[in-house]
Design a binder for these strands. Structure first.
Lengths: 340, 340
DNA sequence: CTGAAAGCGCTTACAG
DNA sequence: CTGAAAGCGCTTACAG
């Protein structure tokens, strides 16, 4: 690999001149520019981005940590949508995306801090928000460009974030179901320590309350964020048929599929006897039978917005700010009906 | 952010000593190590990875370009599996994954070369292999650590790659179908310029030949790698019912779903009248009705193997070498039956 | 418009 | 075991 020095020698100029033609923003006479470019051409020169980063203290990359803490993580449609949104804007803006794995939630902020502290990225998008792990606080303390996908714990009210209307959307789902005559409605969440799940629970409770429905403890269930979690939720929520839910709202489509399965095994017809609503509008939703009604959360748009906000802030040398809530949309298909 | 110099000052040692305690491999007396660590602790010091990279000429990151050239790219299960495999090993090996987008196949090798030429990564995993774009050649010419997921064009026989047994697996699928009595079998591929699709076609042809079946041109169709591609393939392959296929093998599950849809609209029952086999064993496959029989390609394992090979080579300062073929496995479910 | 110099924050061969 | 120095490959304020 040739360096700026080789090119300078060949073109008969000072290395700083070569640097100037490649860094763009500098007055260079047309003739020397041409000479430099020609020399670079034959030497197959491309400026070393690492050296440049060291010099300008900017990497033009943003980081993201993927917390593949549960097996289904990559199977769920959240992940590809996240990547799609992030990639779409990093690419358009000439940035790169650095992705690190991590091993459990505790490790997530270790990895995030590591990327930032070691200057491998100019900023970071944080996706998970477990309430018991203070990733955000750590990041804030270090005064580091961060935008959250999801809402931060209350004490960090001023971080930049982008989130779905989890509480509201869930309340609407319950309203919709109650409007159809359902009175025993179950909420099947994933990890109860995550903020999404908490927010949705609030929305559920608010919706039930609004409809004048008393909630039975048995209708609230948490499980693994995958088919099996939903499947088991059916067992746990139907101990006594008299008190069994006539409708389920599940934290993701994978769980909804598990619920569908569990109901089928018990000989319960969907939607005739029991209604089911999933979340995320995953690709399979439209192809199940019955076709699954699902609450579509615009993760791709959220990720794109997060990346945009982050890159904008970096470009202006500031910390990202502002928070945006995205509306979820209920995609009505065939897994819901009114109660007779 | 504090530097090695600040720590040195505080600990009363030379910067090079600080460097030594952080770079690991050096003899340091226990007492000075402790002093340095203590100083680093209070200054909240972490070595700047960029500076280190420049110095040692190694970034500890590998790159991958994702060619999201068609809309369905992120929806297909290939992408998450690829990322899962790559992330799994980069994480375990203390590497980072740098992902770049690209805009069409032509742009792919521009981006790949850019990452490498500018030294942002130590090596790269290349995923797409369009036969008309010589990404591999370009990469080879620059003597750059590369491993391909997929097989390279013949002229680059010596690049390292990891691939599925596309040809063989397809031949087996045809053998299986022929064994069930099918004589008019369709092959519905995606992009005909991609090597996977070519290889599968060869396998298809070989399988038909082996079974003593003459192929009708109409049974070979190419379409967009998504539902719609499959849907349209049904139209095109069933111009005349007399010559219409009784079995379909599709390049991915999305297309198979489109085929299912198209057949249903024509009032054809699957698997009673027509059999359908997809590829990739996507999450939805098991939940369709009929449950879709699918050729499972171990993309996650392939990606992991690619990353491992790449990192091993980098660690030893060599170019990656060797090629491995992974076996696909037919997951039999309910969309296939024998012909009466 | 261009050159010469200092600096970005590390690493490492060379002495001792 | 530790220090002093040179170097990794750029950038940019300062002169002219």
């Amino acid at each position: 690999m040739s360096t700026i020095r080789d090119v300078a020698a060949k073109a008969g100029v000072h290395p700083s001149t070569v640097s100037r033609v490649f860094s763009g923003n500098a007055q260079i006479s047309e003739s020397t520019r041409e000479r430099v470019l020609a020399a670079a051409q034959v030497l197959n020169f491309q400026p070393n981005a690492i050296a440049r980063s060291l010099s300008v203290r900017r990497t033009k990359t943003i980081g993201v940590i993927v917390p593949h803490v549960f097996d289904g993580y990559f199977t769920d449609s959240f992940f590809p949508q996240l990547m799609a949104g992030l990639l779409e804007v990093t690419y358009a803006r000439g940035y790169r995306l650095l992705v690190g794995g991590c091993n459990g939630y505790q490790d997530e902020h270790v990895q995030a801090m590591d990327i930032l502290a070691t200057r491998q990225a100019d900023g970071i998008v944080v996706t998970s928000s477990r309430l018991d792990v203070d990733t955000v606080g750590e990041l804030q303390r270090h005064n580091t460009p961060t935008v959250l996908i999801g809402r931060p714990p209350a004490q960090h009210a001023n971080v930049a974030w982008v989130d779905a209307d989890n509480r509201n959307a869930t309340q609407k789902v319950v309203r919709y179901l109650a409007g159809l005559g359902h009175r025993r409605i179950a909420y099947v969440g994933g990890d109860p320590d995550s903020s999404v799940v908490k927010e949705r629970l609030e929305g559920y409770l608010a919706g039930m309350n609004e409809a004048g429905l008393t909630v039975s403890e048995e209708w609230i269930d948490y499980g693994y964020f995958a088919e099996d979690g939903g499947y088991q939720a059916v067992e746990r929520t139907r101990r006594t048929e008299a008190n069994a839910p006539t409708a389920y709202f599940a934290a993701n489509d994978l769980m909804a599929i598990g619920i569908l399965q569990g109901l089928k095994e018990r000989g319960l017809a969907v939607p005739e006897q029991v209604s089911v609503i999933g979340t995320n509008d995953s690709p399979e939703a439209a192809h199940l039978s019955p076709r699954l009604t699902s609450l579509q959360v615009p993760y791709r748009a959220m990720a794109a917005a997060a990346a945009t906000r982050l890159i904008d802030a970096i470009a202006q040398g500031q910390l990202p700010r502002g928070q945006t809530t995205f509306e979820s949309q209920l995609i009505e298909r065939g897994s819901v009906s009114s109660i007779k």
